[in-house]
Design a protein around this nucleic acid. Structure first.
Length: 492
DNA sequence: TCTGGGGTCCTGCCACGT
DNA sequence: TCTGACGTGGCAGGACCC
């Protein structure tokens, strides 16, 4: 591990919910919950206002509604989050070529590799500058952790939340970690945490005292060794800018368990097609086809089959998935189906031939066939906007809560709710000073159309000018404007 | 009062070839 | 010809992460 705290971890605060609040002025300061809104949905992100009611990520949405009945419940708008994320990642790449994105809202940066910081003061200045730039460009806040390793930088950013910066000075790691719960360490989830608790270990200090041999005995070689090192504050994993994908998969949970074998087979074929679409989109082919089935009792099983060579042919993947399904007992019902491809390869000559052959067949074998009679395609018919966008034209227009719309007379707005043939829209834009007016229309009103999300910060009028590119000289040391946590967003 | 979606990594078991 | 050791690959499940 390096001596200077020049690994930076950025974590955007309640990212999806914050983006929704920035985009919809009427939701600012209110509890906002983003996630699946169907009967089996779960919370992806809750705003800090919603967290005060006990709502948190991964909680069933139905439970969240009981805890926070007056919150705004919205479907995720990944297009918006991805565009904001791109802006943030661009700022990070201004700091260093070594940027490792972990998700849309998180990344590691090696400041030393970028030449922007070599010591504590430099790292702190770069972190503060970054936070100010993110706010200027996106209107959102992010928390920054700085330390000499990835693990500690991540722990630091967690401590910094919301809207803060924490630096772990070199030499203080063990002392700092010792009283923390074992769950603080990456790789310790509910199962390992419980395992360790039964063995009498609840803090990181107790793991360090137990010794490597004991942890290996309890958790196995790889996990035990890694955990012992982490407990000592040792982590020499490098920031890796590019990672190759290892697998591609798609899955759907159905609002109601499926029992009909014909319907199940049809859904597997649709998933296989979607999976191949994604596979091709990523420029890959793959050798191992995986079928995932979650049964009525939540037990999950996977079946896989490895082909002779990689493929990106939908017919081949459909067939393999179908064969795997034949070996699965689905009596009792299934709540989730998934199809994945692993053992990824770049395109091969063989794949090109396969594609060519398929193209000449004019897609005759490229369709999964019509849905079983009387059954609409899709998971229970209540899928979110992302899934809906991939469907065939629906007989009735859908207006998912939170989605962007435009009305020929009233302009840009978003869907507050819909039902019984009506859709309620609030007309406001990210820059609106006041909450917008609400109007209700018929769902098939021709004046109302879905639209793309508007940028959170008008590019012509940034909230505040971002500082010059991060590759600039390091002499600038101010940038203290955004250090204080927002008073209204303190965690419960 | 029920538990999403898209991933990664590890472990144990088994079959197979040498 | 039989047997055991060993390495490897495939498969299934579990844990974890965001």
């Amino acid at each position: 591990m390096r001596a200077a705290p020049t690994i930076l971890h950025l974590d955007m605060d309640a990212f999806f919910a914050a983006a929704e609040q920035a985009s919809k002025p009427s939701l600012r300061g209110k509890p906002v919950i983003v996630g699946g809104l169907g009967p089996r949905g779960v919370v992806a992100t809750a705003s800090y206002e919603a967290r005060r009611f006990g709502v948190h990520s991964a909680m069933p949405t139905a439970q969240a509604r009981r805890l926070c009945p007056n919150g705004a419940y919205l479907y995720p708008r990944f297009h918006l989050y991805r565009s904001v994320s791109d802006q943030v990642m661009e700022l990070l790449r201004g700091l260093s070529p070594l940027v490792e994105p972990l998700s849309l809202d998180e990344a590691f940066v090696d400041l030393e590799a970028g030449g922007v910081a070599f010591d504590e003061a430099g790292a702190r200045a770069a972190g503060e500058r970054l936070r100010a730039d993110i706010r200027a460009v996106t209107g959102l806040s992010g928390s920054v952790g700085l330390a000499g390793s990835k693990m500690l930088a991540k722990i630091a950013s967690e401590e910094a939340k919301p809207d803060g910066l924490v630096l772990i000075p070199p030499g203080t790691e063990r002392e700092l970690l010792a009283p923390m719960p074992v769950r603080t360490l990456p790789g310790v989830g509910p199962a390992t945490g419980e395992h360790l608790r039964r063995a009498g270990m609840t803090t990181v200090g107790e793991l360090a005292e137990a010794g490597e041999d004991e942890l290996v005995r309890l958790l196995g070689r790889a996990h035990g060794v890694a955990l012992y090192r982490m407990a000592l504050g040792r982590d020499d994993r490098a920031v890796v800018a590019e990672r190759d994908a290892k697998s591609v998969s798609v899955e759907d949970t159905f609002d109601v368990d499926l029992h009909d074998r014909v319907r199940i087979r049809y859904e597997v074929q649709r998933l296989a097609d979607r999976c191949v679409q994604r596979l091709r989109g990523s420029g890959h082919s793959g050798r191992t086809i995986v079928l995932k089935v979650r049964r009525f009792d939540f037990s999950t099983l996977t079946r896989s089959e490895t082909l002779r060579g990689p493929t990106d042919d939908p017919a081949v993947v459909r067939e393999a998935a179908g064969r795997l399904l034949d070996a699965v007992d689905t009596t009792g019902g299934v709540r989730l189906l998934g199809v994945g491809v692993s053992g990824l390869a770049d395109y091969t000559q063989e794949d090109l031939f396969a594609q060519f052959a398929e193209a000449s067949a004019e897609g005759a074998a490229g369709e999964p066939g019509a849905p079983p009679e009387g059954l609409a395609p899709g998971p229970g018919g209540a899928e979110g906007p992302v899934a809906a966008a991939e469907e065939e034209p629906a007989p009735e227009r859908r207006w998912p809560a939170g989605s962007d719309v435009r009305h020929s007379e009233y302009g840009a707005g978003w869907v507050q709710g819909s039902g019984v043939g009506r859709v309620t829209v609030r007309f406001e834009e990210p820059g609106s000073a006041q909450p917008g007016r609400v109007r209700t229309f018929k769902v098939d009103d021709p004046e109302l159309v879905p639209s793309d999300p508007l940028p959170l910060v008008d590019p012509g009028r940034p909230a505040q000018a971002p500082s010059s590119p991060a590759s600039r000289p390091k002499s600038r040391s101010g940038a203290a404007a955004e250090t204080s946590p927002g008073s209204e967003t303190s965690s419960p």
